[in-house]
Measured scan of single mutants.
Amino acid sequence: MGMPNRKYADGEVVMGRWPGSVLYYEVQVTSYDDASHLYTVKYKDGTELALKESDIRLQS
């Protein structure tokens, strides 16, 4: 078993793309699913969504 190939840690605050949009919002990573390679993130309004790594970026 190798290390999970994840870029962002639980609790890390990053920018997540809103689905169907080009806009990124501040989100907190809450979990990562090794099987689906999706991150569960929480937006400031409390919305929780699963995002692909390509829809997440570090805060500038």
Rank of each mutant, 00 (worst) to 15 (best):
N5V: 13
H37I: 03
I56F: 03
G2F: 03
D10A: 06
Y25W: 09
L38G: 03
A35Y: 12
S36N: 13
M1Q: 15
R17V: 05
P4L: 12
S54H: 11
L38E: 11
D33Y: 02
K7R: 08
E12N: 05
V41N: 00
W18H: 07
D55I: 01
V27Q: 00
R6S: 03
V41A: 05
Y32T: 00
E26Y: 09
N5D: 15
Y24C: 05
P4H: 11
T40V: 10
V13P: 03
I56V: 04
R57Q: 11
R57H: 09
V29D: 00
D33H: 05
Q59N: 12
L38M: 13
S54A: 12
V41Y: 00
K52G: 10
T30L: 14
E12Y: 03
M3P: 15
K42H: 08
H37E: 15
E53G: 05
K42Y: 07
M1A: 15
M15G: 03
L49H: 14
Y24V: 02
S21L: 05
Y43G: 09
M3H: 15
Y32N: 00
A50Y: 15
M1H: 15
M3Y: 14
S31D: 09
Y25D: 06
K52W: 09
R57C: 14
Y8K: 00
T47I: 09
R17W: 03
L51R: 01
K44N: 08
D33T: 03
G46M: 03
I56D: 01
S21K: 07
A9E: 09
K44V: 11
G46S: 04
E48L: 13
L51I: 11
D45A: 02
V22H: 14
S31Y: 09
R17K: 11
K44Q: 11
R6P: 05
K52E: 12
T40G: 06
R17A: 04
K52N: 10
G11I: 02
T40P: 01
D55R: 02
R57W: 10
L51C: 04
A9P: 07
M15S: 06
K7A: 09
E26R: 07
R57S: 09
Y8R: 01
A50I: 14
L23D: 13
P19Y: 05
Y43Q: 06
H37W: 07
L51D: 00
L49E: 04
Y32Q: 00
L23A: 10
G11D: 05
S36T: 14
V22L: 15
R6K: 05
V27N: 00
L49K: 08
S21D: 07
Y32K: 00
R6W: 03
M3W: 11
R57G: 07
R6H: 05
S36Q: 10
M1C: 15
S21T: 14
S36G: 06
T40C: 10
K44M: 13
K44S: 11
A35Q: 13
A9R: 09
Y24W: 15
A35K: 13
E48R: 08
E48V: 13
Y32E: 00
Y39M: 02
V13M: 13
G16N: 01
T30M: 15
P19L: 05
S60P: 13
I56M: 11
D10M: 06
R6D: 02
L58I: 14
G20P: 09
G2P: 15
E53A: 06
D10F: 04
K52P: 14
Q28M: 14
T47A: 06
Y8T: 01
P19H: 06
T47L: 08
S60D: 14
E12C: 07
V27F: 13
K52R: 13
Y8C: 03
N5Q: 14
S21G: 10
N5K: 06
Y43N: 08
Q28Y: 10
Q59T: 13
V29C: 01
V29Q: 00
D10V: 09
D45S: 05
G2L: 07
G20Y: 06
S60T: 14
Y32M: 01
H37V: 04
Y32H: 02
D55G: 02
S31N: 11
V27I: 05
V14Q: 01
G20L: 05
N5L: 10
L38Y: 11
V27K: 00
K42D: 01
G16D: 00
G16Y: 05
Y39K: 01
N5C: 14
R6I: 04
T47P: 05
D55C: 06
